[in-house]
Every structure is written in C-alpha cells, then in structure tokens.
Simulated assay, not measured.
Amino acid sequence: MSSLSRVRPGRPRLIPNIGVGTPREQVLEAAARLFTSKGFAATSTREIAEAVGIRQASLYYHFAGKDEILATLLATTVRPTQMVVDEIVTLVPPERVETALCLLALVDIDTLARVPHNVGVLYQLPDVVSAANLDYASFRQAHSELTEAYADLGAQLATRHGVTAPPRALGSMLIQQVEGVITLRADGNDVDSDRAIEIAGGCLRLCGCDQAEATQAIRRATALQDQLRLGASAVTPCPTPVR
C-alpha cells in the first residue's frame, strides 16, 4: 500500500459521535442553535466545538472561523430558492407571470420555514448588517439577486394591472413580505401551507391582482411547486430538517 493511499486518523473526539450528519453538518447545526439562542457575538468557536463534541482545533478543519460558519448558514436561507429561479421562469409561460411570482414566493416561504433554528433571524444582527466581511458578501449578492427576481416578476405583473411602483422598491416589498416568515417563526408560529398561501397571496395583491386572479395563480403555483419538489427529490434526497 502506497503512502498516498493510507488514511490518516483524525483527532479523537472529546465525546463519542452521537450527532446526525457529517462533522461539518453537525458544526453548522450547533452553531445555528447557539447563534440564534445566545447571539453571534456571544458565541465562541470553543462553545460550538464543545456542543458537537470535538476539539476547537478540529472545527477549524471545516471552517476558517465564526464568520465563515455564519455566512454558510445565511446562504441556506437564499440559495435553495435562488437556484430554482431560472427553472421557475422556464416552467411558467410568460403570460402567467402571476403564477411565476406566486411560485417563487411559495418556494421561498418553504425555504425559510424549513431552515434549521430559523437562522433567518441572523439577517438583522448589527454585526452582520454593518460588517464588510467578504464571507458575507456572497450572501448579500445572492439576496440581492433574489430580490431582483422578485422585482422583475413583480414589475411585469404590476404593469399589467396599472400599478405604478419602481421595480427595485417593489422587489424589496415583495421579499420583505415573504421574509415575514422569519418573524412568524421567531414568535413561535408554525408556517403551514395555509399560512404560506396567505403570504404568497399578499405578494400578488401588492402587484394589483384581485382575489379571483390570485386564487387561480395560487392553484397553478401549488401544483408546479409539487413538480419542483419531485424533480429535486429525484436528484438528491431531502434530509429531515433539524428544528
């Protein structure tokens, strides 16, 4: 056996591995729980490592530090939705822009409702909002691109209904409507399918849809959302989210 084929044993854990997922995933889960309960600034990498049952030095094998961990967690709140924007636009005919907007909102709501420990609350931390850290730049870029997707679809729909609103402002209002999920979860409320439909319907009304048009768009979007889920599950299994 060559030296290249030998596997070097890692550092032994402080406690046996009783967590679910890879060590990296366990670090993220523990960090999400600690950041959202104690605060980002008040949580140390040592505490995160101890929560997982590994040495602090072992944590740095997976992440450069707290900033990278937080950036990775924040990405989970936008990347799943951002990754299907093009698929939504392709899947829905241009004349059904109200359905495309509703589908985008429903997918985004589902992402925010499932993300472990409601890490979306970390968006508004002062040390995240004010930071110029490059780790957060990729999250901000992804969030900006998602806002632009809302703005594009929303502006098309608003123009059809004679609603005058700058696209950028409209995009911000739409994504803020959806991100109300974060506040709902923080207040202890479940975001079930009925609540998701209510929020998505609010997005449509912001763009001038009446109740009849919104009802039809929600019906079509809900069916298409099931298609997106089936397509995703055919590619990779969906792990059970940690609450």
Rank of each mutant, 00 (worst) to 15 (best):
V235N: 08
L174E: 05
R79S: 06
A131Q: 01
P167V: 08
I182E: 01
E47R: 11
E145S: 09
G171F: 02
R114L: 12
A212S: 15
A49Y: 02
A186Q: 12
G154Q: 04
N189F: 12
R79I: 08
T45Y: 02
A31L: 03
A137C: 07
D67N: 15
R160H: 12
H143E: 08
P237V: 09
A212K: 12
R6T: 10
L174N: 08
R8L: 12
A149E: 01
L125V: 14
A214F: 09
A75S: 15
A221V: 07
L153I: 07
V27M: 08
L228W: 05
Q216C: 05
L170V: 05
E145D: 14
H62E: 13
C102A: 15
A221L: 03
S130L: 14
V163L: 10
E95D: 15
I69C: 06
H117D: 10
N189V: 04
D190N: 11
G10D: 09
F139E: 00
L70M: 13
V7I: 11
P126T: 11
T72M: 01
G19W: 06
V27H: 05
A113N: 02
L73C: 10
I182T: 08
T43H: 02
G162H: 09
R79T: 10
L230T: 11
D194Q: 13
I197A: 12
K38T: 08
L206C: 09
Q82H: 12
A49N: 03
V7K: 14
S233L: 14
P239Y: 06
F40A: 06
V92I: 11
V78A: 10
A155F: 10
N189S: 10
A200V: 02
I15Y: 10
G39H: 06
V20M: 04
V181A: 03
Q227G: 01
L112E: 01
P116R: 03
R46S: 13
S138R: 15
P93F: 09
S44N: 05
T164Y: 07
E87L: 11
A169D: 01
Q26A: 07
A30W: 01
L224N: 01
P80H: 03
D187S: 13
E179G: 04
L153W: 04
V121C: 01
R96S: 11
L134A: 15
F139A: 00
P166K: 07
A49P: 01
M83V: 08
C207Y: 09
S37H: 07
L204G: 12
E95P: 01
L206P: 04
A186N: 04
L4M: 05
T76E: 12
T240A: 14
Q176M: 13
Q124P: 00
G154K: 05
R205L: 08
L101I: 09
P166H: 12
I175Y: 01
A217M: 07
S233T: 14
L70Q: 05
L122N: 05
Q26E: 14
D135V: 03
L34F: 07
L34V: 06
T222S: 14
C203H: 02
